[in-house]
C-alpha cells in the first residue's frame, strides 16, 4: 500500500476550496437570512412595543380628554343651572312684581269702584231720602206752613242788600212768585201784597204754580232766584250730604 501524496495534497486543497466556497455561497447567506429574519422580528417586536406605548399614551390622552369633557360638561350644566335659576328667580320676581302691581291696581280699582259705588249709593240714598222727605213734606203743606214760608220770604227780601233789592225792582216785570199749590184768590192776593210790600210796592209780580216746590214760596226773575221752599231746602241738604260723602 502506498500513499499518493500528490493526491492527498490535492484533496486537502479541494476540501479547503470547498469550505471557502460553501462558506460564501451557502452557510453565510443562509445564516444571514436567519439573522435578518431575527432582526426583522426583533424590529417588529420593538415596533409593536412602540406602537403599544403610543396606543397606551393615546388611550391615556383620550381618557384625560374624556375626563376633561366630563368636567366641562359638569361645569356647563352647573352654569346652565345657575343661569336658569337666575332667570327663573328674575322671572319669578318680575311676575311677583307684576302680580303685586296688578293686585295693587286691582285693589285701587276696587277701592275706586267701591268709593264710586258708595258715592252713588249715598247719592241715590240721599236722593231717595229727599224723595221720601219730599213726599212726606208734601202731606204737611198746610196754610200755616204756607204762611210761614211767606213770612220767611218777606224776611229774606228784607234781608237783601239795597243794591240787590234795587236790581230786583228794576226787573220787576219779570218777577215771578212760585208756589207749590195754586192758592185761593184771597191767599194769592195776600201773597202778592206781602211781596209787593217787601219790595216797596212798586213792581208787579206774577204768581206761578210749581208742585216741585213741595211747599214754600220762591221769588224768580230773569237773573235772580230767591229760594224759599222745602224743595230748595231738600236740595241744599242733598248737596251737603253729597259733599260730605
Amino acid at each position: 500500500m502506498t500513499l499518493d501524496w500528490w493526491g492527498l495534497g490535492l484533496q486537502a486543497i479541494n476540501v479547503l476550496i470547498l469550505v471557502w466556497l460553501l462558506s460564501r455561497v451557502f452557510w453565510r447567506p443562509i445564516a444571514g437570512a436567519i439573522t435578518r429574519r431575527q432582526d426583522a422580528a426583533q424590529a417588529m417586536l420593538e415596533e409593536g412595543k412602540t406602537a403599544q406605548a403610543k396606543a397606551d399614551a393615546a388611550l391615556a390622552e383620550v381618557a384625560e380628554t374624556r375626563a376633561g369633557i366630563a368636567a366641562e360638561r359638569e361645569a356647563i350644566l352647573a352654569d346652565a343651572k345657575a343661569t336658569a335659576d337666575k332667570v327663573a328667580k328674575a322671572a319669578l320676581k318680575d311676575a311677583q312684581t307684576k302680580a303685586d302691581a296688578m293686585i295693587a291696581a286691582a285693589r285701587t280699582a276696587i277701592d275706586r269702584d267701591r268709593n264710586t259705588a258708595r258715592k252713588e249709593n249715598a247719592t241715590r240714598a240721599a236722593e231717595l231720602s229727599v224723595e221720601i222727605a219730599a213726599r212726606l213734606l208734601g202731606r204737611f203743606n198746610t196754610p200755616a206752613v204756607q204762611a210761614t214760608f211767606l213770612s220767611q220770604l218777606v224776611e229774606a227780601i228784607a234781608g237783601m242788600s239795597a243794591s240787590d233789592r234795587t236790581a230786583l225792582i228794576a226787573s220787576a216785570d219779570d218777577i215771578e212768585i212760585i208756589t207749590a199749590t195754586n192758592p185761593e184768590d184771597e191767599e194769592r192776593a195776600k201773597i202778592e201784597q206781602a211781596v209787593k210790600d217787601a219790595l216797596d210796592g212798586t213792581p208787579s209780580v206774577r204768581l206761578v204754580t210749581d208742585p216741585d216746590l213741595i211747599a214754600g214760596l220762591e221769588l224768580r226773575s230773569g237773573h235772580f232766584v230767591l229760594h224759599n221752599s222745602w224743595r230748595a231746602d231738600l236740595e241744599n241738604i242733598l248737596k251737603e250730604v253729597e259733599s260730605a260723602a
Binding site: I17, L18, L22, V25, F26, P29, A33, A40
Partner: peptide
C-alpha cells in the same frame, strides 16, 4: 462533487427573503 455542491448551493441560495 465540489461543482455540484457549489452550483447547487448558489442556485438554492439565490433568492433568500424574509418570507421564506
Amino acid at each position: 462533487i465540489m461543482a455540484i455542491l457549489v452550483i447547487g448551493a448558489f442556485v438554492l441560495t439565490r433568492r433568500l427573503d424574509l418570507r421564506p
